[in-house]
Every structure is written in C-alpha cells, then in structure tokens.
Design a protein around this nucleic acid. Structure first.
Lengths: 188, 188
DNA sequence: CGCGTCATTGATGTGCATCAAGTGGTGTGG
DNA sequence: CCACACCACTTGATGCACATCAATGACGCG
C-alpha cells in the first residue's frame, strides 16, 4: 500500500493492525448475533462465512484466505449477521472499526481502500449470484475451482495443484449442490 | 437523517444531492464497463440491476426502489460492473463519489451512513445467496414477494396488495427459475 | 485385524425445464 | 358492436438434471 504517508500516520496504521488474534481450526472468529466492533484482516489461515435459515439450513457465503478482510456484514446493524469459522489454524489482525473510521477521515488513501474492499465484496457476491442462479452443477464447480486456484496463485502457490481446506459438504453448500455431484465431473 | 450538522455542512450536503437525472422506462442508468463516477439515490421509480456471462446469460441481482442507493459495484474498479435499468420512468440524485468521500471525511455521520449502506448491500446479497442456494422454487418466490411487500409497506403502500414493476422474466431471472414455475404456486 | 469414517458408484425418485397446445385479454379494423 | 389477430399467460406432457438412497470400497486408527 504505497500511500505517501507521514511518520505519524504510519505509526497509527501500525497501531490499528497491531492487535492479533489466533483462531484454531473449527473455532468461530465471530458468530451471528454477536456485537460488531471490528473488522479482521486474515494474516494466515483459511475461513468460511455462512448464513443459516431459521429451520437450520446453512448456506456458505464465501471462503476467505490470507490478505482478505472479513466482518463487513456486521457494520450495518452493529451485530454480525453471519458466522465466520476457521478452516485451519489461523491468525487475524483485529481492526476496531471505530478506529478505522476515525483514521480513514484523515488518510484519504485508507478511506479509498476501505470503500474498495466493500465494493469488491459486493461485486464478488454478484458473481456468486450469477453462479447460483444461472449455471449448472459442473459449471459451478469449475468456476469455483478456477477462482480458488487463481486466488492461491496470486499468493504464490501453484497454478496447477492446490490443497482444499474446506470439506466437500462446505463446497457443496457454497455451490448449492450435494456432494455426490462433486465427484461426477471427474470420471477416473 | 438527524445528524447534528452546522449550516455549512447542510449546504454541502444539499449541493451533493442537487444534481438530478431522469431515466425513462427501459433506459439504462449505467451499464457494465462504463466509467464510474457517481452513486445514485433513487428519488422516484424502480430499477433492476443485472450481470451477464460472456455467453449471454443474464442474472438479475436486485430490484431497487425509492430511497435506495445504486452504483456501489463501480467503486472497486472505477467501472460499473453491472447494468442498472429503469423499470418505470424514474428520477435519481447523482452523487459524485469523490465529493461524497470528501464530505464523509468531515461529517462523521455521513461516513457512518455510507458504510452502513454498503454493509447493508452485502448482507442483502447474503440473503439472496441463501435463497438461490438452499430454497426450492415456491419458497424463493414467497421470500421474494414478502421482501418486496415489506419494502413497499415501509414506504407507505398497502400490506396486502402491490403492483409489480418488473416482468415475470425478470422475477424468474432474479430467482433462478423459469416463468412457467411462477404460476404454479397459485392454483385458481 | 476389526471397526468407523468417508469417498465413490449406481439405481431410483423428484423438481424443475422444456416444449407445445390452449385460453383469455386487448387493440384494431370492418 | 363484432370479428379477428396478436400477445402474454396458463396448462399439461415429456425429459433432464440433480437429489436421494443404498451398497461398495478405500483409508486411518485403535
């Protein structure tokens, strides 16, 4: 983030990302209904976010990896409205949102950055809606895998192999299909 | 919006929402790929937003009515990434985004407001993902109609009747189903 | 070695898409 | 005022994609 900041601003940004939190595999980073106070920047590890219906059905809304921001759903109502769970041992930066707002009033580049992060999430979800609403099962799976390998490649991982941190049930939930379908596209 | 503002700030907010634009039924407010510069606040009328695949399939991502904000998808890449079309003759406030950022650096309440609007859109889309990924056709239609009547009721319209501004094809696209299904739930 | 868990496979069932025919409303011209 | 064409909507028959269910096999672990 080359933003052309002065010393003092740099120190304040350091301060905002200073607080860390470890989350172990399977544990929630936050849960639906919890009071919102912070966004989280993923340093290491892998998360899923999901929402549920009253009658217990679950929809995975996304998978997040290092460098991505999580918790944006909490801003609107001062409560988180989904569940964020670590899929492997993870570490995040805790970024108190009031401090973030305060600083983005002073640092234009930070303000832009925050806005873009939120807009990016909106656009990503548009893509998921397109996937769920108008693609067939194989297509959805292909789109999902391509998206994942691309994001991993951007982080320096292989372009041709990857380790999936989420279970098949979780992939199925994300793609709106059952696990039996996940095997079909790849006859041995 | 009782924000406790001084005279000067009020004048600047007035200024930001001063510019109006009329869009007639069927015409685009903005289109995919167009350079982003403004958010739009709907004063009157009804819009849909949609995304498309390269091969021409279309997914309606939302329906927007008076009081709602449209154009958030453009922030991240300085280009709009979906199409916004008026479903009836409409009028919007053109809110230049750079001016909005500038002012929300000075007016805390405005900054909050912008953040909440974006977060609300993220949460809304979570709901649509749940709908598309884990509900069956009838359920989706019911959820859609209930949501719509509720939003209309919040604007002073009837709780028991409404006029649908969008076509059945558009509803079908939004809900990920074909129009023949839309009739089934209501045997005469 | 025996057990439990999970991936795979195939058979069957169901929801929804697709297709085609029928119905009714609306506008037009006679 | 009626006959007609046009359109959107409805309805039902058929087919396909995917869910569901049950059986089998691979793997890890006590």
């Amino acid at each position: 983030m080359p933003m052309g900041l002065d010393e003092k601003q740099l120190r304040r940004i350091d301060e905002i990302i200073a607080k860390r939190r470890k989350v172990e595999r399977g544990a929630p980073l936050y849960s639906n209904g919890e009071t919102f106070s912070s966004l989280y920047a993923i340093r290491t590890g892998f998360f899923k976010t999901c929402v549920t219906t009253e009658d217990g059905r679950e929809q995975v809304t996304g998978f997040q990896m290092a460098g991505e921001i999580i918790g944006l759903d909490g801003i609107v109502s001062d409560r988180y409205t989904c569940n964020a769970v670590a899929l492997e041992d993870a570490e995040v930066c805790v970024m108190p949102f009031d401090r973030l707002e305060e600083m983005s009033r002073e640092i234009t580049a930070l303000q832009h950055h925050v806005h873009k992060i939120m807009s990016r999430e909106i656009v990503r979800e548009h893509g998921v809606m397109l996937l769920l609403g108008s693609m067939r099962a194989e297509e959805r799976l292909a789109a999902f895998l391509l998206n994942l390998v691309q994001r991993l490649h951007a982080r320096g991982f292989s372009r041709t192999e990857m380790i999936l941190r989420m279970s098949r049930e979780e992939i199925g939930s994300y793609l709106g299909m059952k696990i039996e379908l996940l095997a079909v596209p790849f006859p041995s």
